[in-house]
């Protein structure tokens, strides 16, 4: 394509990109300002110094929440991918009579807004004595994310060449061995993408911990961050530091594993 015609596009898109970066800039810049700078309404200028103290204050409040989010999101993701990939394998590689029906049912369970099961989910966890516990949250997130994991891994497994499966079958390799020894290692990047998508979803989720957890021991980072607003009302710099801390894990995945982040995102639409 002609080089000349690219320039206006570049300028236009770069301009929009700046606009898109503005909130991120505001978050980072103001998380490093002093309360004095904030009260003088200096929001757009870069910070005068580096007020790292803000992060210490925010971390003091968010500490437990971040730990809890990690302790919930990691095992829930691992379990969802593990359980889901087993089913995904069956759906994608071992066609059976009702595989389409299962796929259909799982898709609906995945995409219906989960708000509609919030009331029974609360009751279910209460009946299991798991309400307001981290295992309870793990169970809730497993229920909500395993179908998604199954569908996405199924789409990834479909791209594995059929010959590989045939060869394995000829070698006398059963489904368990094939799944565990061949399929998972071969499709590990797909699994990584799936895991990133699910981890990010769980980490960023807000409704479930708001409805089901209380207190330092069990509350996740997102409700604590939302509560930070109420308690430290006009302290925007602390809020921004807290928002930055809460965003770090998903942003890190986005920055360092961007390709897999994107491929998970796309696979999540079952495109």
């Amino acid at each position: 394509m002609k080089t000349a015609s690219r320039l206006p596009w570049r300028v236009c898109i770069a301009g929009l990109a700046l606009l898109w970066l503005l909130p991120l800039y505001v978050m980072l810049a103001n998380s490093l300002k002093t309360i004095r700078e904030i009260t003088q309404s200096q929001y757009v200028l870069p910070p005068g110094g580096f007020e790292v103290q803000n992060y210490a204050v925010a971390l003091g409040v968010l500490r437990h929440g971040l730990v809890n989010s990690t302790l919930v999101a990691l095992p829930a993701t691992a379990l969802a991918v593990l359980l889901g990939s087993g089913a995904g394998f069956f759906l994608a590689r071992l066609r059976f009579r009702h595989s389409q029906a299962v796929f259909f049912a799982a898709t609906i369970a995945t995409f219906l807004p989960y708000q509609i099961v919030l009331i029974p989910l609360t009751q279910l966890l209460a009946d299991l004595r798991l309400i307001n516990t981290r295992p309870g949250l793990i169970v809730a997130y497993l229920l909500l994310n395993t179908p998604m994991a199954a569908l996405i891994t199924a789409t990834f497994f479909q791209t594995v060449p059929a010959e590989m499966q045939e060869a394995a079958a000829l070698d006398g390799c059963g489904p368990v061995t094939f799944y565990w020894r061949i399929l998972l290692p071969v499709a590990q990047l797909g699994l990584l993408s799936t895991a990133i998508l699910i981890f990010t979803t769980i980490w960023n989720e807000f409704l479930i911990p708001t409805a089901m957890t209380q207190g330092t021991f069990n509350q996740l980072a997102t409700p604590v961050l939302a509560g930070l607003k109420g308690n430290y009302a006009q302290l925007w710099h602390i809020q921004m530091a807290g928002a930055t801390l809460t965003s770090l894990p998903p942003l890190a995945l986005f920055v360092f594993l961007g390709r897999y982040f994107v491929s998970g995102l796309m696979a999540g639409t079952l495109k």
């Binding site: 990691l74 095992p75 295992p135 061949i182 590990q188």
Partner: peptide
């Protein structure tokens, strides 16, 4: 043809098990 399971696979399982059990 047959690969050995990656260590990461086992790690993930261990992680899941330990972290589920720990809070209890």
């Amino acid at each position: 043809m047959i690969r050995r399971p990656r260590i990461t696979q086992w790690l993930v399982i261990m992680l899941a098990a330990v972290m589920t059990a720990a809070p209890v």
